[in-house]
Amino acid sequence: MSRSHRITLSGVDFIPDLSGALFAPEFGALLVADLHLEKGTSLARRGVHLPPYDTRESLLQLQAVVGSTQPRRLIFLGDSFHDGAARERIDASDLALLRAITARAETVWITGNHDPEPPEDVGGIIIEEMALGPVTLRHQPKALREVEAEISGHLHPAAAIQARGQRIRRRCFIADARRLIMPAFGSYTGALSVRSEAFEGLFGDFHVWMIGDKAVHRFPAAQVR
């Protein structure tokens, strides 16, 4: 795990992990956004049979980061399940793996637009949003009150930079002093450029932490295209 970067929000330090998860050592909390479990099988009815291994792949990644950070709390920031029927489609062995992971930490499922009612039998509690010390955790970024700080997901941020004539685009964390948006964790989730309209007005002077192959890299807004 790369411990070289710290993102500070309202005095709380967060460590962006190479897997796309975010660790808050002070609270022993591991945050994970936009898992989109069973996205692969979601189009089955229409006859689109994507390789159904995305859930397993995401859970193995999750298991690894839970193993390396040993969190006391595991908090999912919504859109953890791709749709309401995901629970019916999930393979028995994948379900067992998910339960084994949630059994290792106090688990919280924040609801998202894809999963307003996440399944209740996979361990943990379900809420709409929560506070982690001075920081609010919710699925979709909102207009912030005067002194509020927030961590959210939903937008699947990605950033591109130019290096040696090549354009390199990666998932990323994006944050200014008060707001942080996490990359999507799920293995079939696409990403949206932080330069696109959806991000307009959300950030002041921001940085991105791009997820490379072996490390997380930090860039100032000016370098992001």
């Binding site: 994507l50 390789p51 397993r56």
Partner: peptide, 23 residues
């Protein structure tokens, strides 16, 4: 709408290669 409906084939390729390399 790109993000919701389509899955990038690069992602599919990576996942399939890990889990069923002889597909």
């Amino acid at each position: 709408t790109a993000r919701q409906m389509t899955v990038n084939t690069d992602l599919i390729y990576d996942v399939l290669r890990t889990h069923q390399p002889d597909h």
